[in-house]
């Protein structure tokens, strides 16, 4: 049997360790403080929208007109419609626009 511990496997295992460290580390560091400062609390409350926005904005801007238009429409639709509608309507829109305007 060949050695299962290839370079790729080591990269994956250390990548997993690094990922777990980020998921555990924030709590370990922050739980040392008994009282959370209001600014820290405000910062923590802003985390999800702030992080997730960074996964959206460049995708809207740097891909092309089809993606930019789709994202603008999805933003409007998403104000009212549930997420699954946004996701699948958006995918259909981007596929259609790509075939029309490339």
């Amino acid at each position: 049997m060949t050695d299962p511990f290839t370079v790729n496997v080591w990269i994956i295992l250390f990548g997993a360790l690094a990922t777990y460290a980020t998921r555990f580390g924030g709590h370990v560091v922050l739980s040392r403080f008994e009282k959370i400062h209001p600014r820290v609390e405000a910062a923590l409350n802003a985390v999800p929208a702030a992080v997730l926005t960074t996964l959206v904005a460049p995708a809207a801007v740097f891909n092309g007109p089809a993606e930019a238009i789709t994202m603008a429409l999805a933003l409007i639709v998403g104000w009212r419609a549930p997420m699954l509608v946004v996701v699948f309507l958006g995918a259909a829109t981007v596929a259609l626009l790509r075939s029309l305007i490339g």
Binding site: P48, A49, L52, T53, L55, V56, A59, A60, N63, E67, T70, M71, A74, L75, G78, M83, V86, V87, G90, A91, V94
Partner: peptide, 11 residues
């Protein structure tokens, strides 16, 4: 493009 759309929904 599903992934950015999904993240937009979360935002």
């Amino acid at each position: 493009f599903l992934l950015p759309l999904y993240f937009l929904g979360l935002v």
